[in-house]
Protein backbone atom coordinates (compact mmCIF):
# COMPACT_ATOMS: atom_id res chain seq x y z
CA UNK A 1 0.00 0.00 0.00
CA UNK A 2 1.05 3.54 -0.70
CA UNK A 3 0.40 6.89 0.90
CA UNK A 4 -0.87 8.88 -2.04
CA UNK A 5 -1.44 12.13 -0.17
CA UNK A 6 -1.07 13.50 3.35
CA UNK A 7 -2.45 16.59 5.04
CA UNK A 8 -1.32 18.19 8.27
CA UNK A 9 -3.17 20.95 10.12
CA UNK A 10 -1.66 22.61 13.17
CA UNK A 11 -0.79 26.06 14.52
CA UNK A 12 -2.63 28.08 11.90
CA UNK A 13 -1.20 26.24 8.93
CA UNK A 14 -2.35 23.54 6.53
CA UNK A 15 0.28 21.53 4.68
CA UNK A 16 -0.53 19.05 1.93
CA UNK A 17 2.36 16.87 0.68
CA UNK A 18 5.00 19.34 1.91
CA UNK A 19 3.19 22.28 0.32
CA UNK A 20 1.52 24.94 2.48
CA UNK A 21 -2.01 25.22 1.10
CA UNK A 22 -3.42 27.60 3.71
CA UNK A 23 -1.88 29.77 6.37
CA UNK A 24 -3.52 32.35 8.58
CA UNK A 25 -2.04 35.80 7.96
CA UNK A 26 -2.15 36.52 11.68
CA UNK A 27 -2.58 34.32 14.78
CA UNK A 28 -6.27 33.38 14.95
CA UNK A 29 -8.31 31.46 17.51
CA UNK A 30 -9.07 27.95 16.23
CA UNK A 31 -12.72 28.72 15.40
CA UNK A 32 -11.71 31.67 13.21
CA UNK A 33 -8.79 29.83 11.64
CA UNK A 34 -10.80 26.77 10.65
CA UNK A 35 -13.65 28.91 9.30
CA UNK A 36 -11.19 30.89 7.16
CA UNK A 37 -9.61 27.65 5.95
CA UNK A 38 -13.02 26.22 5.05
CA UNK A 39 -14.01 29.38 3.18
CA UNK A 40 -10.75 29.25 1.24
CA UNK A 41 -11.85 25.86 -0.13
CA UNK A 42 -14.84 27.56 -1.77
CA UNK A 43 -17.07 24.61 -0.84
CA UNK A 44 -20.83 25.01 -0.52
CA UNK A 45 -21.59 22.85 2.52
CA UNK A 46 -23.61 24.78 5.17
CA UNK A 47 -23.55 21.80 7.54
CA UNK A 48 -19.89 22.61 8.24
CA UNK A 49 -20.93 25.55 10.41
CA UNK A 50 -23.01 23.27 12.65
CA UNK A 51 -20.19 20.86 13.39
CA UNK A 52 -18.21 20.86 16.61
CA UNK A 53 -14.54 21.88 16.66
CA UNK A 54 -13.18 18.35 16.30
CA UNK A 55 -15.39 17.54 13.31
CA UNK A 56 -14.50 20.85 11.65
CA UNK A 57 -10.81 20.07 12.07
CA UNK A 58 -11.15 16.59 10.57
CA UNK A 59 -13.57 17.74 7.88
CA UNK A 60 -11.28 20.46 6.49
CA UNK A 61 -8.34 18.03 6.45
CA UNK A 62 -10.44 15.46 4.60
CA UNK A 63 -11.63 17.97 2.01
CA UNK A 64 -8.03 18.83 1.14
CA UNK A 65 -6.94 15.18 1.28
CA UNK A 66 -9.63 14.04 -1.13
CA UNK A 67 -9.69 16.99 -3.52
CA UNK A 68 -9.50 15.82 -7.16
CA UNK A 69 -8.57 12.28 -6.07
CA UNK A 70 -11.89 10.93 -7.39
CA UNK A 71 -12.10 8.35 -4.62
CA UNK A 72 -15.87 7.78 -5.01
CA UNK A 73 -15.31 7.17 -8.73
CA UNK A 74 -12.40 4.75 -8.22
CA UNK A 75 -13.71 2.71 -5.29
CA UNK A 76 -17.03 1.28 -4.13
CA UNK A 77 -18.51 3.22 -1.16
CA UNK A 78 -18.50 0.12 1.09
CA UNK A 79 -14.76 -0.43 0.51
CA UNK A 80 -13.66 3.07 1.57
CA UNK A 81 -12.47 2.91 5.19
CA UNK A 82 -11.66 5.53 7.80
CA UNK A 83 -9.37 4.72 10.72
CA UNK A 84 -8.46 7.49 13.14
CA UNK A 85 -6.82 8.10 16.47
CA UNK A 86 -7.04 10.92 18.97
CA UNK A 87 -6.11 11.63 22.58
CA UNK A 88 -8.81 13.82 24.04
CA UNK A 89 -11.97 12.38 22.56
CA UNK A 90 -14.53 15.22 22.38
CA UNK A 91 -13.51 17.02 25.56
CA UNK A 92 -14.20 20.48 24.08
CA UNK A 93 -17.77 19.55 23.20
CA UNK A 94 -18.25 17.58 26.43
CA UNK A 95 -17.47 20.75 28.40
CA UNK A 96 -19.81 22.80 26.21
CA UNK A 97 -22.58 20.25 26.76
CA UNK A 98 -21.93 20.13 30.50
CA UNK A 99 -22.43 23.90 30.72
CA UNK A 100 -25.95 23.50 29.30
CA UNK A 101 -26.93 21.02 32.02
CA UNK A 102 -24.94 22.30 35.03
CA UNK A 103 -27.76 24.48 36.39
CA UNK A 104 -30.86 22.45 37.22
CA UNK A 105 -32.94 25.65 37.13
CA UNK A 106 -31.70 26.52 33.65
CA UNK A 107 -31.48 23.01 32.24
CA UNK A 108 -31.55 23.16 28.45
CA UNK A 109 -29.30 20.52 26.87
CA UNK A 110 -28.84 21.41 23.20
CA UNK A 111 -29.33 18.48 20.80
CA UNK A 112 -26.95 20.06 18.27
CA UNK A 113 -24.19 20.07 20.89
CA UNK A 114 -25.03 16.70 22.42
CA UNK A 115 -24.77 14.81 19.11
CA UNK A 116 -21.11 15.76 18.90
CA UNK A 117 -20.17 14.29 22.28
CA UNK A 118 -18.83 11.17 20.55
CA UNK A 119 -15.47 11.47 18.76
CA UNK A 120 -16.33 9.06 15.94
CA UNK A 121 -18.97 11.54 14.77
CA UNK A 122 -16.14 13.28 12.91
CA UNK A 123 -15.78 10.11 10.83
CA UNK A 124 -19.52 10.15 10.23
CA UNK A 125 -19.37 13.72 8.96
CA UNK A 126 -16.69 12.77 6.42
CA UNK A 127 -18.69 9.68 5.39
CA UNK A 128 -21.91 11.67 4.97
CA UNK A 129 -20.18 14.32 2.93
CA UNK A 130 -18.54 11.78 0.59
CA UNK A 131 -21.13 8.97 0.79
CA UNK A 132 -18.52 6.54 2.15
CA UNK A 133 -19.93 3.38 3.73
CA UNK A 134 -16.88 1.32 4.62
CA UNK A 135 -15.30 0.16 7.85
CA UNK A 136 -14.52 2.95 10.28
CA UNK A 137 -13.04 3.13 13.74
CA UNK A 138 -11.55 5.62 16.15
CA UNK A 139 -8.97 4.69 18.79
CA UNK A 140 -8.16 6.87 21.77
CA UNK A 141 -4.51 6.83 22.88
CA UNK A 142 -2.35 9.17 24.91
CA UNK A 143 -0.44 10.06 21.73
CA UNK A 144 -0.32 9.24 18.02
CA UNK A 145 0.68 5.60 17.51
CA UNK A 146 1.84 4.90 13.94
CA UNK A 147 2.43 1.20 14.65
CA UNK A 148 -1.14 0.62 15.80
CA UNK A 149 -2.52 2.58 12.87
CA UNK A 150 -0.37 0.64 10.42
CA UNK A 151 -1.31 -2.72 11.94
CA UNK A 152 -5.04 -2.02 11.95
CA UNK A 153 -5.21 -0.55 8.45
CA UNK A 154 -2.98 -3.32 7.04
CA UNK A 155 -5.22 -5.99 8.55
CA UNK A 156 -8.30 -4.43 6.96
CA UNK A 157 -6.58 -4.48 3.58
CA UNK A 158 -5.37 -8.08 4.06
CA UNK A 159 -8.86 -9.24 5.00
CA UNK A 160 -10.31 -7.45 1.96
CA UNK A 161 -12.50 -5.32 4.21
CA UNK A 162 -11.35 -2.16 2.46
CA UNK A 163 -9.82 -1.14 -0.90
CA UNK A 164 -8.74 2.34 0.16
CA UNK A 165 -8.31 4.05 3.51
CA UNK A 166 -8.28 7.51 5.02
CA UNK A 167 -6.27 7.23 8.20
CA UNK A 168 -4.76 9.54 10.76
CA UNK A 169 -5.19 11.71 13.77
CA UNK A 170 -7.47 14.61 14.81
CA UNK A 171 -7.33 16.12 18.26
CA UNK A 172 -8.21 19.40 19.91
CA UNK A 173 -8.02 20.81 23.43
CA UNK A 174 -8.45 24.55 23.73
CA UNK A 175 -6.16 26.18 21.21
CA UNK A 176 -3.99 23.09 20.83
CA UNK A 177 -5.18 21.34 17.71
CA UNK A 178 -3.70 18.95 15.21
CA UNK A 179 -4.97 16.86 12.36
CA UNK A 180 -2.86 14.52 10.30
CA UNK A 181 -4.49 12.53 7.55
CA UNK A 182 -3.25 10.11 4.93
CA UNK A 183 -4.86 8.62 1.86
CA UNK A 184 -3.75 5.00 1.51
CA UNK A 185 -4.28 3.16 -1.75
CA UNK A 186 -3.08 -0.16 -3.20
CA UNK A 187 -0.38 -0.04 -5.85
CA UNK A 188 -2.62 -1.93 -8.25
CA UNK A 189 -4.92 1.10 -8.48
CA UNK A 190 -2.14 3.55 -9.31
CA UNK A 191 -0.54 4.21 -12.67
CA UNK A 192 2.38 6.17 -11.23
CA UNK A 193 3.11 4.25 -8.03
CA UNK A 194 6.77 5.36 -7.93
CA UNK A 195 5.64 8.86 -7.05
CA UNK A 196 4.25 7.81 -3.69
CA UNK A 197 5.47 6.83 -0.22
CA UNK A 198 5.25 3.26 1.06
CA UNK A 199 2.73 2.86 3.85
CA UNK A 200 4.75 1.65 6.85
CA UNK A 201 5.21 2.82 10.47
CA UNK A 202 8.51 4.55 9.75
CA UNK A 203 7.13 6.62 6.87
CA UNK A 204 3.97 7.43 8.81
CA UNK A 205 6.14 8.73 11.62
CA UNK A 206 8.26 10.80 9.26
CA UNK A 207 5.19 12.39 7.68
CA UNK A 208 3.53 13.01 11.05
CA UNK A 209 6.68 14.62 12.46
CA UNK A 210 6.82 17.19 9.66
CA UNK A 211 5.07 20.31 10.89
Amino acid sequence: MLITRSVHITKGKIVCDDKTVFEALEPLPFTEFIKSAFKSLDTAYPKFYKMDKLSKLAFVASEILLKDKEIPQKYKPETIGLIFQNANSTIETDIEHQLTIADRKNYFPGPAIFVYTLPNIMLGEICIRNKFQGENALFIFDKFKPEQLFAHVSLLFQKNKIDVCIAGWADIVGENYESFMMLIEPESMLANSKDFTTFDPSNINILFSKK
Partner: peptide, 17 residues
Protein backbone atom coordinates in the same frame (compact mmCIF):
# COMPACT_ATOMS: atom_id res chain seq x y z
CA UNK B 1 -32.49 26.43 4.71
CA UNK B 2 -31.54 22.75 4.59
CA UNK B 3 -32.61 22.09 8.15
CA UNK B 4 -32.52 18.55 9.56
CA UNK B 5 -34.03 16.59 12.45
CA UNK B 6 -31.45 17.90 14.94
CA UNK B 7 -32.47 21.43 13.96
CA UNK B 8 -36.08 20.52 14.72
CA UNK B 9 -35.04 19.42 18.21
CA UNK B 10 -33.11 22.67 18.62
CA UNK B 11 -36.24 24.67 17.77
CA UNK B 12 -38.19 22.66 20.35
CA UNK B 13 -35.54 23.63 22.95
CA UNK B 14 -35.67 27.26 21.75
CA UNK B 15 -39.46 27.36 22.25
CA UNK B 16 -39.14 26.06 25.79
CA UNK B 17 -36.17 28.22 26.74
Amino acid sequence: LGLDSIDALEIIVLLEK
